[in-house]
Design a protein around this nucleic acid. Structure first.
Length: 595
RNA sequence: GGCCCCGUAGCUCAAUUGGUUAGAGCGCCGCCCUGUCACGGCGGAGGUUGACGGUUCGAGCCCGUUCGGGGUCGCCA
């Protein structure tokens, strides 16, 4: 029976006979005395085996190797004065091993468990159980657990009920690609795995639970990224009879509690807010990183009368000319900004047709090249400097487009802003900046499908004053942004059937389609639905940011690779024909050619 | 689907313009060592340079294809 954990032994235990279990973390055989490091999840303690004092264990001790699982029984002793180890929490004591028992031997692991060195990620994933044994991953997963506990405690204290919702659900038309599961009992029919518990949580409000939350697994069959896994975890919350302000305040309290406990970070509440329109205009993003300036400036008026058609033409066509003023940019060469340069190519991939630039010299003179240069009058130059507040050393980067291209222009300048901020070292990694973005438009034009599309989701309520014209209405929606990362988003929901039907209509969903897909929701709305709203956090992302990690894979116990495979399981994999037959499923894939 | 980076010993990496038998540290194995904690000393084993093809007198290095990992654009309401 275990009496103590390795990492908990202190001077006060001296003289105690203890029974410890753990893994061999390292050993030092001096030919006479043998030192073993014994590790469990609490830490490491030094075990001593000495032919005089512990003759029974000595022979066995010399055969122990890294990662052997052992039981040690012995006396906790004070270390000799000269061999205290201040780097170890147990460094004032050691345990003389009267009895040693090997519970299991271990192969030499493919990478060191006790060292915190970088290891190739595919190797880590293949041997994830060994990777997770390392201190770093133990710490990260315990942090994740800790955050979960804070969430549960905080919400429980405020009257929330944690309710599980199904994982086998119905495929929905909007949104990401679904993971599908064939139904054996209903030949030809399919379940979908949930992209989020959205509809269920609204129905729980209809059911009168008043306040719900769930730490829910969600599934989206889209391409992976550092912050996107095919299955991920949402902290899903929904509340009845609360205003947007009350919901936001409650969430600020939750987030502040988490950051205070785990990071010791004191948020100043209420958090800053930006409207969607303001965020786009000033930062070129609906999730702005406001840890640094470099704000975009609209300079349309400066160029309205310019002889340079690219700019004046854009303004005339109802568009905009937007400037990204970059201070201290002497080091950024023209080559990088001109066609073929890396910065030019960078904006091109976001749809830029070009990238104009000018430089402000000592004395306020404005320099540029080509046709832009020829069109530059003293008035325009002065206007540029005045509007942007540019100083000598500024590089002015311009984007322009007609009315429909404005979002594209703002987007690529916003991306460039981030890149420049990073490159110029304007982002203080120790600074944390949280804010809300509100007043999103209800809908966004989908050029491919030639129809309006819900920006958030089709159950989001419009601002009451905008209800008369849904197409241009702003939504009662809010995203919470942390250092330029969207960690959560939510909205007030539509709770009256007539308005919900109008929204479906606006996104081109016919009554039959709406009925087929969401009939249960529309029906539910007929039976006394309370006003309600909520939020969903990307839980993995949130923990990742708390941990200061660059990838959510670091805070997920068993993540998948970019090709959505589990290297340890070897999943996904082929299944037996019999299984497919049972499910009434046949592959359309041609057999792979042999040899 | 596109673009970019990477793949050399168990691990982390090196290898000049294409040039002898592909090296180092750690780990592993053996021997020695009674106070180490990155123990130390001596010795040893360990390589299809991801794979296939090409260029060349000669390829880890150049070219093509392919597999795998990562980043990113599209995609992700």
């Amino acid at each position: 029976m275990r009496s103590d954990y390795c990492g908990t032994l202190r001077s006060e235990h001296i003289g105690k006979t203890v029974s410890l279990y753990g893994w061999i973390d390292g050993w030092r055989d001096h030919g006479g005395v043998i030192f073993l490091d014994l590790r469990d999840y609490t830490g490491v303690v030094q075990i001593v085996s000495d032919p005089q004092r512990t003759p029974e264990s000595y022979h066995l001790a010399s055969s122990l190797r890294n990662e052997y699982v052992v039981r040690v029984e012995g006396r906790v002793s004070a270390r000799p004065e000269h061999s205290l180890n201040p780097r170890l929490s147990t460094g004032t004591v050691e345990v003389y091993a009267d009895t040693l028992e090997v519970l299991n031997r271990a192969e030499t692991p493919p990478f060191a468990i006790s060292k915190d060195e970088e290891v190739d990620e595919k190797l880590r994933l293949k041997f994830r159980y060994l990777d997770l044994r390392r201190g770093r991953m133990q710490k990260l997963l315990r942090l994740r657990h800790w955050v979960m506990q804070i969430v549960r405690r905080h919400l429980d204290e405020r009257g929330f009920t944690e309710i599980e919702t199904p994982v086998l659900v119905k495929s929905t038309p909007e949104g990401a690609r679904d993971y599908l599961v064939p139904s054996r009992v209903n030949p030809g029919d399919w379940f979908a795995l949930p992209q989020s518990p959205q509809l269920f949580k609204q129905l729980l409000m209809v059911a009168g639970f008043d306040r719900y939350y769930q730490i829910a697994r969600c599934f989206r069959d889209e391409d992976l990224r550092a912050d996107r896994q095919p299955e991920f975890t949402q902290l899903d919350i929904e509340m009845s009879f609360l205003s947007m302000e009350e919901i936001i305040a409650l969430n600020e309290g939750l987030v502040a509690a988490i950051l205070q406990e785990t990071m010791g970070l004191e948020l100043s509440l209420p958090l800053r807010r930006l409207t969607y329109a303001e965020a786009m205009v000033r930062y070129g993003s609906d999730k702005p990183d406001t840890r640094f300036g470099l704000e975009l400036v609209e300079v349309s008026e400066v160029f309205r009368e310019s002889s340079f058609q690219v700019l004046s033409g854009a303004v005339a066509a109802g568009g905009k000319v937007v400037c990204l003023p970059v201070p201290g940019a002497e080091g950024i060469t023209n080559t990088r900004v001109k066609p073929g340069g890396d910065l030019f190519e960078f904006v091109t991939q976001f749809g830029a047709r070009g990238l104009l630039f000018a430089r402000v010299r000592e004395g306020g003179q404005v320099d540029t090249i080509g046709a832009f240069s020829k069109s530059l009058t003293p008035e325009i130059a002065a206007g540029m400097i005045e509007k942007t507040g540019a100083q000598p050393g500024h590089l002015l980067l311009f984007g322009a487009g007609d009315g429909t291209a404005v979002p594209t222009v703002l987007n690529y300048l916003g991306r460039l802003r981030l890149k420049m901020g990073e490159e110029l070292g304007l982002i203080d990694p120790n600074r944390h900046n949280l804010l809300w973005v509100t007043d999103f438009p209800m809908f966004e034009w989908n050029a491919e499908e030639k129809r309006l599309e819900a920006l958030h989701h089709p159950f989001t309520a419009p601002r009451p004053e905008d209800e008369h014209d849904l197409k241009t209405a702003r939504a009662l929606a809010y995203d919470i942004i942390w250092n330029g990362v969207e960690v959560g988003g939510g909205s007030l929901r539509i709770y009256r059937r007539a308005l919900q039907e109008r929204v479906f209509e606006t996104i081109g969903l016919t009554e039959e389609e709406a009925r087929a897909k969401f009939g249960f929701l529309l029906d539910a709305f007929e039976y006394g639905t309370p006003p309600h709203g909520g939020i969903a956090y990307g839980f993995d992302r949130f923990v990742m940011l708390i941990a200061g990690e660059q990838s959510i894979r670091e805070v997920i116990a068993f993540p998948k690779t970019q090709r959505a495979q589990d290297l340890m399981l070897g999943a996904p994999s082929a299944v037996a024909d019999r299984q497919l037959k049972e499910l009434n499923v046949r592959s359309t894939l041609l057999p792979k050619p042999q040899g």
